[in-house]
């Protein structure tokens, strides 16, 4: 009976949601799925590999596709867009992440009350879990570092690598419920990585193009596909990786509270 009344009450909500979906669906009938819409500006008899006159192109996607390997030296075009063409947006995004983490800490310090301070005794973790986590944790952190080191060559990058490291630290919390990552170390790593990001942007101001976050060394140190091919881009992604990793670890640590 309980079930039926709940369903009855949520019927208008279901109707409204379906109406919303139907409206959006009608809007999306016009949008073709799987059709190339970034290359409408190309000449009619275009062959793949042909040189394009990039001066007159206005579609950003087409311009990035045509030039990104030469301009950034990155094999992963998503990385090229995130770090090189839209590097300033990424700086803003990292700032939003930092603000959100700070906000979580501030709100939690406001609402903390007394009954949380008394610590209850918890059972120690089992031997298998403890030793196994200690065995796997370095491997996971190594994998995270690999992911953000190779962000310009293979799928992955600073964000993914940092998040992988943060989820590795979760394993550490399971293995050692009473301990946690040190707030001091986390904040030092975070601020150093943020400063490194800004510093690498200022390097772009001093080199040939005189643009903040410009990547003027692309292709100077190697061909596309080599670890050093992309100029400053891997260095920026490493900074992002450390920053995201420490921020996410700090976020989880704050949400966890006092080991309860």
């Amino acid at each position: 009976m309980m079930e039926r009344t709940t369903f009855h009450r949520s019927l208008p909500a279901i109707a409204l949601a379906l109406l919303f979906a139907a409206t959006l669906f009608v809007a999306f009938v016009e949008v073709d799925f799987g059709e190339p819409r970034i290359e409408e500006e190309l000449p009619v008899n275009y062959q793949p590999g042909e040189e394009i006159d990039t001066e007159n192109i206005t579609t950003p996607g087409l311009r990035y596709l045509a030039n990104s390997s030469e301009e950034t030296g990155s094999a992963n075009l998503v990385t090229a867009v995130v770090v090189n063409y839209r590097g300033f947006d990424t700086l803003g995004e990292v700032t939003i992440l930092f603000l959100a983490a700070t906000g979580v800490g501030a709100l939690l310090s406001f609402i903390k009350d007394d009954d949380e301070k008394k610590k209850k005794k918890i059972l120690p973790p089992s031997l298998i879990l403890n030793k196994g986590a200690r065995l796997v944790l370095p491997l996971i952190i190594l994998f995270g570092v690999y992911v953000f080191l190779h962000g310009h060559l293979s799928p992955g990058g600073g964000f993914q690598g940092g998040v992988i490291i943060a989820s590795g630290m979760l394993l550490f919390y399971i293995a050692e419920p009473t301990k946690g990552a040190s707030h001091k170390v986390i904040s030092i790593i975070e601020s150093t990585a943020g400063l490194a990001f800004i510093g690498l942007g200022i390097v772009g101001l001093m080199t040939a193009s005189k643009i903040f976050l410009a990547n003027d060394f692309a292709g100077d140190w190697g061909e596309v596909g080599m670890l050093v091919s992309a100029g400053l881009l891997p260095l920026i992604y490493i900074a992002i990786g450390f920053k995201v990793g420490s921020e996410m670890t700090g976020l989880v640590e704050k949400m966890r509270g006092d080991g309860s």
Binding site: L123, S126, L129, G132, A133, L135, V136
Partner: peptide, 20 residues
């Protein structure tokens, strides 16, 4: 190798957590 290491540990943890 990675599956061989992680799978027994995780299923042990799940069983222990469920019991507790």
């Amino acid at each position: 190798v990675f599956l061989l290491i992680t799978n027994p540990i995780s299923s042990h943890a799940i069983a222990r957590g469920a019991y507790r």
